[in-house]
């Protein structure tokens, strides 16, 4: 089994495999996103409480999910790099950070926009929004450390360490923010509880989430391929391209 893992670990074979898979992934992601959007905008009935603004959920929730799992994937790549020193994991970590940060930003903005019609204010200290904001700070921390250590060879390991430390703290931060939220506003409706949605509402959500995941992987792969070219330009196979 490990053969596969190490084969994928070498930048050259990753470059070939991803080159082969990429067009299909992009196409599928595009299809999923388009159908999901059309479905969410046009065919989902309006919510009895929130009216049409519930359609924003179809962007906010997938973005928030991707933000969180993006960080976990990034930290996992960091852990792999720290333990097995596979260069590709370092490249994966470096490329995942900006995508994750932009998606977290998207989740924050859409969450705020969604808050406007529901509560009248753009920013509301809701548990999910607050932990997304903190997640955004964690991303910024990883990117800041990476750019500060740019010239150094040990930049990869330092960022990997920070990502892993962030990952260990993520659940603690999440629970303390949730607990803090229930402490101060126990009663009011919050974005976090997922009201039991009828099927015609959560199905498009599932489509959107899958679309976002595929989008994340394909964009991630493009960035990794570019970074491989950037780092391995000295090698034979890169010059032949």
């Amino acid at each position: 089994m490990w053969g596969w893992f190490h084969r994928l670990g070498s930048p050259k074979s990753f470059y070939e495999i991803s080159g082969f898979l990429l067009p299909a992934m992009f196409a599928l992601a595009g299809v999923l996103l388009v159908t999901g959007t059309v479905w969410a905008l046009g065919f989902v009935p309006q919510d009895y409480q929130q009216g049409h603004s519930v359609r924003i959920m179809y962007i906010h929730v997938p973005a928030a999910i991707l933000a969180q799992s993006g960080y976990m994937m990034m930290a996992a790549a960091g852990a792999v790099f720290l333990i097995w020193r596979i260069k590709l994991a370092d490249i994966a970590l470096q490329c995942a950070a900006p995508i994750g940060a932009t998606l977290t930003f998207l989740a924050l903005v859409t969450g705020a926009i969604w808050g406007k019609p529901t509560w009248g204010t753009l920013w509301v200290w809701d548990a999910r929004l607050t932990s997304t904001l903190i997640l955004f700070f964690l991303y910024v921390g990883v990117i800041a450390l990476r750019s500060a250590m740019d010239g150094r060879e040990s930049a990869g390991r330092a960022t990997a360490m920070l990502a892993v430390v962030g990952l260990i703290n993520l659940p603690i931060i999440k629970y303390s923010v949730d607990w803090w939220f229930t402490l101060h506003q126990p009663s009011s409706f919050s974005l976090t509880e997922k009201p039991s949605m009828p099927i015609e509402m959560w199905l498009p959500l599932l489509v959107m989430v899958l679309g976002f995941y595929l989008f994340f992987f394909s964009v991630w792969a493009v960035r990794i391929r570019t970074e491989i070219l950037n780092r391995e330009y000295g090698t034979q196979w890169v010059q032949s391209l």
Partner: peptide, 10 residues
């Protein structure tokens, strides 16, 4: 500060 402050929140 940027790296560590988020970890102080709990």
């Amino acid at each position: 500060a940027i790296l560590v402050l988020p970890l102080y929140i709990p």
